[in-house]
């Protein structure tokens, strides 16, 4: 009897007739609104916001003090606000690369398992929405919160710069820092999506947070060391020829670019330092006829960082797709 039923099921016509009806986006806005409202009022977000505003104010103030002496001949004075470090403080972008993952993980680590533990998940999914809307709504709500926070800081820095430096930014500088804002949001998107995956996989929010932070630490601290070791295995230097040395350096760079931290760092260099002409190795022969130190126009700088940009976005999408696939298969019973 059971065998018959199973057979009958298998014999059923193609997926088309089994396709589900109704839009997967039903209820998406309700979820996004709820998620953003939750985050913008939560104590967790206030702590993180306080932290990032404090570092922004501190580092930018420090940078302004040292820039005041530099004079006005620098064409990209405003961009120096992000990159100038004054002992003992590192530059603002250094802090950003460090704080954004933390905020992103803090936003997303209990997205799904939190609902599960509050026993609200089955009640939510019993409403006329698909799981798609819940997951995407949460992700977009978190991304929206992150964008809001980062944009606020971006404006804050501009305001501080205007007050402190007394020169308005050029349009080139505004565009460059806008692109930096966009890159930072997607860099945060990667860690959001990673934390989302963890929140689907692990039932305990604490475990999910630890797993996401472990991944972040791995890429921040160990990936560079590991990349060096791997490069020595992949392209060993046997005879010490130039080709071998170059090959090893290339492999090491390639491996380190698997880390979102490297991609983001390269984007920052390309955007904030207009003089940057290449993010990889350059041989002296390739520099023939180049005007060293002359800044590239924005378009050329964008071309330079484009692979890194698409890389960041692609990883974000891939991780979200993974979370999606895992969540669709999950049994929701408590």
């Amino acid at each position: 009897m059971t065998a018959n039923a199973t057979l009958a099921n298998k014999g059923r016509p193609a997926a088309a007739s089994r396709a589900r009806e109704g839009s997967p986006w039903t209820g998406l806005w309700a979820v996004i609104a709820k998620e953003m409202a939750d985050h913008l009022t939560s104590a967790r977000m206030r702590i993180l916001e306080f932290l990032i505003v404090l570092t922004a104010a501190g580092t930018v103030y420090g940078a302004m003090q040292s820039l005041k002496g530099a004079g006005a001949e620098d064409r990209f004075l405003f961009l120096r606000l992000y990159t100038t470090s004054t002992d003992p403080l590192p530059a603002f972008v250094g802090f950003l690369g460090f704080l954004v993952p933390l905020i992103a993980i803090g936003l997303a680590f209990d997205s799904i398992n939190g609902e599960f533990n509050r026993r609200t998940l089955s009640r939510l999914l019993a409403q006329p929405i698909y799981r798609d809307a819940l997951l995407l709504g949460k992700f977009l709500g978190q991304l929206g919160t992150l964008s809001l926070v980062l944009s606020a800081i971006w404006l804050l820095i501009f305001g501080l710069g205007l007050l402190g430096l007394g020169v308005p930014p050029s349009s080139e500088e505004v565009w460059r820092s806008l692109w930096l804002l966009l890159a930072t949001i997607f860099y945060g998107g990667i860690w959001l999506a990673l934390a989302l995956v963890c929140s689907v996989v692990f039932r305990q929010p604490a475990t999910a947070a630890l797993a996401a932070i472990a991944a972040w630490l791995f890429f921040t601290v160990f990936w560079g060391i590991l990349g060096g070791l791997l490069a020595r295995v992949v392209s060993p230097v046997r005879f010490g020829t130039v080709q071998e040395l170059v090959a090893q350096a290339q492999s090491q760079l390639g491996i380190s670019r698997l880390s979102p931290n490297t991609l983001y760092a390269e984007i920052m260099v390309g955007l904030l330092n207009p003089g940057t002409r290449s993010l990889g190795l350059i041989l002296p022969a390739q520099l023939q006829g180049a005007l060293l130190g002359a800044p590239l126009p924005l378009r050329q700088s964008l071309l330079l960082i484009w692979p890194q940009m698409t890389g960041l976005i692609a990883v974000t999408l891939l991780l979200f797709a993974l979370a999606y696939a895992l969540f669709q298969r999950q049994e929701i019973r408590a």
Binding site: R20, G22, R119, R123, A126, P128, I129
Partner: peptide
């Protein structure tokens, strides 16, 4: 299976706990 939104719009479910 195919029309869950129609079903869930008309059926109320109060889960365990």
């Amino acid at each position: 299976v195919r029309q869950p939104l129609h079903v869930k719009a008309r059926v109320g479910y109060l889960p365990d706990q």
